[in-house]
């Protein structure tokens, strides 16, 4: 992989996504060995900079780095010089001066990792920035679906709920459409960004031109909006529920959680409308009984736990590929 940073997936070609997936498969095999530690990042230092709460992403990055024999340091907003008013760029420059080869960053503001990536020579991985992007979550979602269903070409992936505030949804749109899947966004009109279909199409066209990108059929690789979840579930291969972000619901974008749950909660009846063997996913943490019913979340079609497990392998793959991306010549 010949890039310094991973900030979002809008600039990933299908080949690059395949490369990450294949490497992640090799990493998952490593995780199945009695000794899970491999040495490729020996002597490298990874700093996890988490300015926002996180369990699975932070722990999974930490494990991924340690499994590759890197030194991993965790920095949070509280207890660091951020409390003394140090700017983001100064903090990360300091981290680089202390010897960080890679910076993994979670930040409440969209674009923060981009700013840091521009200022540092170290590799920067976006671990979630505001509402904007969460590329490693999308990569592990992609990996999980590919692992279970094989090719993504022509698959129908339904992303349900609060798309407006969801960085997971945004990165997943790029990942799945680039692999040739059709993404259907379903939720209350107030939680679906206006004009997102054309925005995605325009974004793709600007990035890849009008031609067919890497063998991906243009007609598949598109986003559609559907406000009726019962209809959206029909013929779906993947049902992905998003978390209702109670902390971001100040503007009263829907009448009540009860009404939301009735209209957009993932129930067994709705899962039954999808294709036989369709996958149920959730990026976590879940509000059980609101966007997803417990019997669905822990049912036979749920791959939610696999998503978490695969997260370590996918992040190992990314760290491994980035470590060679700019330093040495990849032969």
């Amino acid at each position: 992989m010949r890039r310094k940073d991973v900030l979002d997936l809008d600039d990933f070609s299908a080949e690059e996504l395949h490369e990450v997936m294949e490497t992640a498969e090799a990493m998952r095999e490593v995780l199945s060995r009695p000794i899970k530690r491999v040495p490729p990042l020996r002597g490298k230092t990874i700093v996890n900079c988490f300015y926002e709460a996180s369990t699975r992403t932070r722990v999974s990055f930490e494990l991924a780095g340690k499994n590759l024999s890197a030194d991993v340091v965790n920095v949070g907003a509280s207890g660091s010089s951020v409390e003394k008013g140090e700017s983001l760029v100064d903090t990360t420059r300091t981290l680089q001066a202390l010897g960080a080869d890679m910076v993994v960053m979670r930040h409440p503001h969209a674009g923060a990792p981009y700013l840091v990536a521009r200022e540092l020579s170290a590799a920067v991985i976006n671990a979630g920035d505001g509402w904007h992007a969460h590329p490693t979550q999308a990569l592990l979602d992609l990996f999980t679906v590919r692992d279970r269903l094989g090719s993504l070409e022509g698959r129908k992936v339904v992303i349900i709920g609060d798309v407006l505030h969801s960085r997971v949804a945004r990165s997943n749109i790029w990942a799945f459409t680039t692999m040739g899947a059709q993404v259907v966004l379903c939720g209350p009109p107030t939680l679906i960004p206006a004009g997102i279909e054309t925005a995605v199409a325009e974004g793709r066209r600007r990035r890849w031109g009008d031609g067919i990108q890497s063998g991906v059929q243009k007609e598949h690789a598109a986003v559609k909006v559907q406000y009726d979840l019962d209809k959206a579930c029909q013929d779906a291969d993947v049902l992905m529920a998003l978390r209702i972000q109670k902390e971001r619901q100040a503007g009263a974008l829907f009448p009540s959680l009860r009404e939301y749950s009735r209209l957009y909660g993932l129930t067994q009846e709705r899962v039954a409308r999808a294709k036989f063997g369709a996958l149920v996913m959730h990026p976590g943490p879940m509000n059980e009984g609101i966007e997803i019913m417990p019997e669905v979340a822990y049912g036979a079609q749920s791959v939610i736990e696999e998503q978490v497990t695969n997260g370590v392998a996918v992040r190992m793959a990314l760290l491994y590929l980035l470590a060679g991306g700019h330093g040495g010549r990849a032969v």
Binding site: E19, E22, T23, A26, V38, P40, Y320, G324, A330
Partner: peptide, 24 residues
């Protein structure tokens, strides 16, 4: 066995993209 990750020249040559799955 894919031994790429255990090579002693990864630091100088850079990690490679052609990482394949091992299996026992």
């Amino acid at each position: 066995l894919d031994v790429t990750m255990f090579r002693d020249d990864l630091q100088t040559r850079g990690t490679r993209s052609s990482l394949q799955r091992s299996s026992m």
